[in-house]
Design a protein around this nucleic acid. Structure first.
Lengths: 243, 243
DNA sequence: CACTAAGTTTGAACGGCGTTCTGATTTAGG
DNA sequence: CCTAAATCAGAACGCCGTTCAAACTTAGTG
């Protein structure tokens, strides 16, 4: 719209940018409205014109960060040929870890206790991003399902096990997918998340000096357990010598 | 020693008890030295006679909680016959999850960002407990290794991949264990940790209504991928009908 | 143009926090 | 008994999120 709205958008963006800067430089404690205002030459209370409360600002940050994570992960996945299922799973998993290591504060913001006394709104701070993550993993699980169903269908899952919103969305995108495959997608999520969060929170560094190798082995084991041959997990750039 | 020391120990215990109470009742934000003092009829600064700083108190709490977690997990594991490897793994995994759900604040304290601006001391807040956890998992991995090595030894691990302290401790307890088995133990840790932390932090609840089933399926898949038949994973109390 | 209504900003204020410091009080040991 | 150490209260400092009244700036209307 007019100049007013432009200034407002610019100031909002500056607040978020400085918040992210403080977050990555000084950790979660450095994120304070007063400090942001100080750096902008504003009083701390002025920020309340742009965000209803500190938690609202944090929620917005989580949304932005979660979205950027998914952009990056989906890009990495799409750099691998669609028929190379193992390669796409590997790319997804590696992208999540690399992003988490590059943006540990962002990872904590999304998956941990974000910051002192922050309370997420009902439905989570970033429902669309979370759905995108879930859907992306489901897509991988769906592609692997023909190979994996022989070994992965031991426990019986029903659609009623999942939230209605998720179930409907998935059935819309993947009409013939059984609920067990959705469970597989969530378990894949957990499997990637486990080692990454242990590493980000420093519980792995005291035990092993090479978390990357550990994580890679875990991804390979995941691929193998899905019935996808390890030889399918080509490194990016490698020609398809053997199938 | 004398009466003085007894009073001191008692007051110290009361501080920790109230801190835990506030933690579980009001979340991490409710943990404050002033609030603890208020409830004890003491001034907030008086606590500095018992703990050098707030972080020292938190470190002590983490130590206590982590130790109690391991006590419980080890008890659950030892309730299963030593030769029932799959059952012991299952018991371990289930015990961790049940403990985490019963003590979510404790779980966050150990594995997440504990509380506003807490900084863990060098070497981690609870090194002995962490070592116990690692060793317990290694014991499980070692027991499963004869069955698992055929499929789990794909990536090559060296002893130099692990921290010297851990490597020495393990080689002392399990002289013939290859480093790949230690990597397996850490990956088992990650696998259990992933779904549990997603659930504790509320990322699973919005997707599935039955995290228990999901987690159980994950444990069964883990056991299967180790080459241990699923039929080995008896429910506690079930007679050994088939092997 | 003037004028009003909305949006923006400030600065003080409130209550909370961890931490430090000064004194007072209690207690243990020589 | 008396001295030195331990324990405690209370004020103080600087930080925080949030609220509020008052000043200031801008946009839109008559």
């Amino acid at each position: 719209m007019g100049r007013r709205a432009r200034l407002r958008a610019q100031t909002t963006a500056e607040i978020k940018a400085i918040a992210l800067k403080h977050l990555s430089e000084g950790g979660p404690d450095a994120l304070s409205l007063r400090a942001i205002g100080r750096e902008m030459g504003m009083s701390g209370s002025a920020i309340y014109s742009y965000f209803e409360t500190r938690d609202a600002l944090i929620t917005t940050l989580i949304n932005d960060i979660y979205t950027s994570l998914l952009d990056q992960v989906e890009t990495a996945r799409d750099a691998v040929a669609p028929d190379d299922i193992a390669g796409r799973i590997l790319a997804w998993g590696q992208a999540v870890r690399l992003w988490a290591l590059a943006n540990p504060e962002g990872f904590r913001l999304i998956y941990g206790d974000p910051v002192a006394g922050y309370h997420a709104p009902a439905g989570g701070p970033a429902p669309e991003a979370a759905k995108r993550a879930c859907l992306g993993l489901t897509e991988l699980a769906a592609a692997a399902w023909p190979y994996a169903k022989a070994t992965q269908a031991s426990t019986d899952h029903q659609w009623s096990d999942f939230s209605p919103g998720l179930a409907d969305t998935i059935r819309e995108h993947f009409p013939d997918l059984p609920p067990a495959a959705v469970a597989l997608a969530l378990r894949m999520w957990g499997r990637m998340h486990g080692l990454i969060s242990l590493e980000v929170y420093g519980h792995l560094g005291t035990q092993t000096g090479d978390p990357a190798k550990l994580y890679h082995a875990e991804l390979l084991d995941l691929i193998r357990s899905l019935g996808l041959g390890v030889e399918h997990a080509r490194q990016p750039g490698m020609p398809r010598t053997s199938t």
